[in-house]
Amino acid sequence: MRAPLPADEPGRLAALHDAQVLDTPPEEDFDDIALLASQICGTPLGAVSLVDRDRQWFKAKVGTDLEGAPRDLSFCTYTITSHDVLEVQDTAVDPRFAANPAVNAHRLKFYAGAPVVLDGTFAVGTVCVVDHEPRVLTDAQRRALRSLARHASVQLELRRYARHAGEIADRMRQLDRMKDSFLATVSHELRTPLSTIRGYLEMLLEDDFDAETSRRFLSVMSRNSDRLLRLIDELLMVAKMTDDRIQLDLAEVDLADLAHQATAACRALAEHRGVKLRDRTEQPVPARADGKRIAQVLNHLLVNAIKFTQPDGEITIDSTAEGEPELTITDTGVGIAADELPHVFDRFYRCAAAEVMAAQGPGLGLAIVKSIVDAHHGSVHLESEPGIGTTVRLTLPR
């Protein structure tokens, strides 16, 4: 049996495509949703599924290697025809699925999905779970599935708002109206982790979960709290940049030692992303600088390099003490197009790669880097080639 089309299928597809999330790389926020759905419902398979014109595509998945399925064979194409949970307790006795070849090929005996709704109207996908045995969800599991679907909707909405805010920011940059851009961008960056924290708090308060699931909830909330603190630190720095009030505590420092510390601090993140991080700073590199501020600069540059370097890529930090003290950070990442290079140090600028890779951040990191280096009367230069990588060269007074 073929599922009926939703009432406004063209509008639904328009909302889905406007989110620009189809065929994007995995993201931790969505991966967590799929995993939690599977754990809470006690099923081997869980997914965040998006239903396109002719296919179902998994933005996140647990327990399967499939990237998706033809829409005609999908359970989720039935779920998106309403705003309620669809539960198929036994596919063998359901005429919609009993003869479905995908159901029989993969021994899919149970399905439950909650619709992911955009604009309060369009069900563009689902948070769903599948089992190889017939079963029935508890009321608490159905509530959790609905809550996770709402959380997925918020994540999609925020990504769409962020992109629109970026487009607005580009126009405002041309008109020198950075105030509105600032408000739009910061609103998005604050709402994303706050919405995540709130969603998981709601679930923790609603039901009793086992210790493992509760720990995972708290881990997600802790990660998003750290993200909020980083954003606030960046905003405070921007306020100081705006008023030309960056205060420096100058002293004799060793840039090589600061590079060692920054590399050690970022190594866990690099390993998590599957990126090699090499520290080739060996000889002391004396300079006169604010050690805490330069450590902040190096952290921004290394995190940026890790963020835009694919797994199995490499990042190298090197130094020279000949002439002016200099550090270089070279990566084999995605690179930056030539027409974007003049803007990379602008406040709130996000390059095309940041949008494609759904990289977090309001576009303040490199602007902060340049302001700190300028306050030291130093220089920072960036060279890049798409598909080859990027080199950042940092020079300070001796």
Score class of each variant (00 low, 15 high):
residue 271 E to F: 15
residue 30 F to A: 02
residue 272 H to I: 14
residue 113 G to R: 00
residue 214 S to C: 14
residue 198 R to H: 10
residue 207 D to G: 08
residue 18 D to W: 03
residue 364 L to W: 04
residue 101 P to E: 00
residue 253 V to E: 06
residue 367 A to H: 13
residue 202 E to Y: 13
residue 168 I to S: 00
residue 131 D to M: 12
residue 96 R to Q: 09
residue 170 D to Q: 11
residue 178 M to I: 12
residue 346 D to T: 08
residue 312 D to Y: 13
residue 240 K to P: 00
residue 1 M to G: 13
residue 71 R to T: 01
residue 360 Q to I: 04
residue 394 L to H: 04
residue 110 F to D: 02
residue 285 V to W: 07
residue 362 P to Q: 11
residue 310 Q to R: 14
residue 21 V to A: 00
residue 312 D to A: 07
residue 341 L to D: 03
residue 293 R to Q: 06
residue 77 T to L: 05
residue 340 E to V: 05
residue 162 A to M: 07
residue 182 F to I: 09
residue 226 D to S: 12
residue 100 N to V: 13
residue 100 N to E: 11
residue 152 A to D: 06
residue 64 T to D: 10
residue 372 I to G: 05
residue 287 A to I: 04
residue 62 V to P: 01
residue 231 L to H: 04
residue 218 L to T: 09
residue 277 L to V: 09
residue 356 V to W: 08
residue 394 L to D: 01
residue 297 V to E: 02
residue 196 T to L: 01
residue 216 R to M: 14
residue 42 G to D: 08
residue 137 L to M: 06
residue 363 G to W: 03
residue 177 R to Q: 14
residue 236 L to T: 07
residue 304 N to W: 06
residue 314 E to H: 03
residue 326 E to T: 06
residue 293 R to M: 15
residue 175 L to T: 15
residue 22 L to M: 12
residue 357 M to F: 08
residue 201 L to C: 12
residue 54 D to I: 12
residue 292 K to F: 01
residue 85 V to A: 06
residue 248 L to Q: 01
residue 250 L to K: 15
residue 388 I to E: 11
residue 198 R to N: 07
residue 381 H to N: 11
residue 257 D to A: 13
residue 389 G to V: 12
residue 372 I to S: 02
residue 252 E to G: 04
residue 363 G to M: 03
residue 119 D to L: 12
residue 218 L to N: 01
residue 231 L to A: 07
residue 180 D to C: 06
residue 187 S to V: 03
residue 371 S to R: 10
residue 273 R to T: 15
residue 168 I to N: 02
residue 105 A to S: 10
residue 141 Q to W: 00
residue 242 T to S: 14
residue 338 A to C: 14
residue 244 D to A: 05
residue 283 Q to K: 08
residue 344 V to S: 06
residue 98 A to L: 10
residue 153 S to I: 08
residue 216 R to P: 03
residue 100 N to C: 14
residue 256 A to Q: 02
residue 163 R to F: 13
residue 288 R to K: 02
residue 215 R to K: 09
residue 52 D to V: 07
residue 385 E to I: 02
residue 201 L to H: 02
residue 381 H to T: 08
residue 204 L to G: 01
residue 54 D to G: 12
residue 34 A to K: 02
residue 199 G to P: 02
residue 319 S to H: 14
residue 79 T to A: 10
residue 218 L to S: 00
residue 89 Q to C: 15
residue 29 D to W: 05
residue 82 S to R: 15
residue 275 V to F: 10
residue 25 P to W: 06
residue 318 D to V: 09
residue 82 S to K: 15
residue 185 T to D: 01
residue 167 E to W: 01
residue 88 V to H: 05
residue 189 E to M: 14
residue 345 F to L: 04
residue 210 D to S: 04
residue 313 G to I: 08
residue 311 P to F: 05
residue 350 R to C: 09
residue 199 G to W: 10
residue 260 H to R: 08
residue 234 E to V: 00
residue 38 S to D: 07
residue 315 I to T: 03
residue 36 L to R: 02
residue 182 F to E: 14
residue 68 G to A: 05
residue 190 L to Q: 00
residue 283 Q to M: 11
residue 240 K to I: 06
residue 115 P to C: 00
residue 6 P to N: 08
residue 27 E to T: 06
residue 38 S to I: 04
